Simulated scan of single mutants.
Amino acid sequence: MRPLGLSRGVCGRGRRIAETRGPTPPVICEQLLPVAHAARHARNVVTDACLRWGMPHLVAPAALIISELVSNVVDHAHTLMTIEVVCRPSHLYLAVQDGATDPPVRRDLDDTIPPVHGRGLILVETAATAWGYDYQEGGKTVWATVSRDRATPGPLP
Score class of each variant (00 low, 15 high):
residue 2 R to F: 12
residue 2 R to P: 14
residue 6 L to R: 09
residue 8 R to K: 07
residue 8 R to W: 07
residue 9 G to R: 15
residue 11 C to L: 07
residue 11 C to F: 07
residue 12 G to Q: 06
residue 12 G to S: 03
residue 14 G to H: 14
residue 14 G to Y: 09
residue 14 G to C: 10
residue 15 R to G: 11
residue 15 R to S: 15
residue 19 E to L: 07
residue 29 C to S: 10
residue 30 E to W: 03
residue 31 Q to C: 06
residue 33 L to A: 04
residue 34 P to A: 06
residue 34 P to K: 02
residue 35 V to K: 13
residue 37 H to R: 11
residue 37 H to F: 11
residue 38 A to H: 06
residue 39 A to W: 01
residue 39 A to H: 03
residue 41 H to W: 08
residue 41 H to K: 08
residue 41 H to M: 08
residue 41 H to R: 10
residue 42 A to P: 04
residue 42 A to R: 02
residue 43 R to K: 15
residue 43 R to I: 10
residue 45 V to P: 01
residue 46 V to Y: 00
residue 48 D to A: 14
residue 48 D to W: 09
residue 50 C to M: 10
residue 57 H to K: 04
residue 57 H to Y: 02
residue 58 L to K: 13
residue 59 V to E: 03
residue 60 A to D: 02
residue 63 A to Q: 10
residue 66 I to M: 05
residue 67 S to D: 02
residue 68 E to I: 05
residue 69 L to W: 00
residue 70 V to G: 00
residue 70 V to F: 07
residue 71 S to F: 12
residue 71 S to D: 09
residue 74 V to E: 13
residue 74 V to H: 09
residue 75 D to F: 05
residue 76 H to S: 11
residue 76 H to P: 04
residue 76 H to R: 06
residue 81 M to W: 09
residue 83 I to S: 14
residue 85 V to E: 05
residue 86 V to D: 02
residue 86 V to F: 02
residue 87 C to M: 10
residue 88 R to N: 14
residue 89 P to Y: 00
residue 91 H to Q: 13
residue 93 Y to R: 06
residue 94 L to I: 11
residue 95 A to I: 11
residue 97 Q to D: 13
residue 101 T to N: 08
residue 102 D to T: 14
residue 102 D to F: 09
residue 104 P to A: 08
residue 106 R to M: 15
residue 115 P to F: 07
residue 117 H to I: 11
residue 118 G to M: 09
residue 121 L to K: 00
residue 121 L to W: 03
residue 124 V to R: 00
residue 125 E to T: 15
residue 125 E to A: 15
residue 126 T to I: 06
residue 127 A to N: 02
residue 127 A to S: 01
residue 128 A to N: 05
residue 131 W to N: 07
residue 132 G to R: 04
residue 132 G to D: 01
residue 132 G to H: 03
residue 132 G to C: 00
residue 134 D to M: 12
residue 135 Y to I: 10
residue 135 Y to K: 11
residue 135 Y to A: 13
residue 136 Q to H: 15
residue 139 G to H: 09
residue 140 K to M: 06
residue 140 K to G: 07
residue 140 K to W: 05
residue 142 V to Q: 01
residue 143 W to V: 02
residue 145 T to C: 04
residue 147 S to D: 08
residue 147 S to F: 05
residue 153 P to M: 05
residue 155 P to G: 10
residue 156 L to P: 12
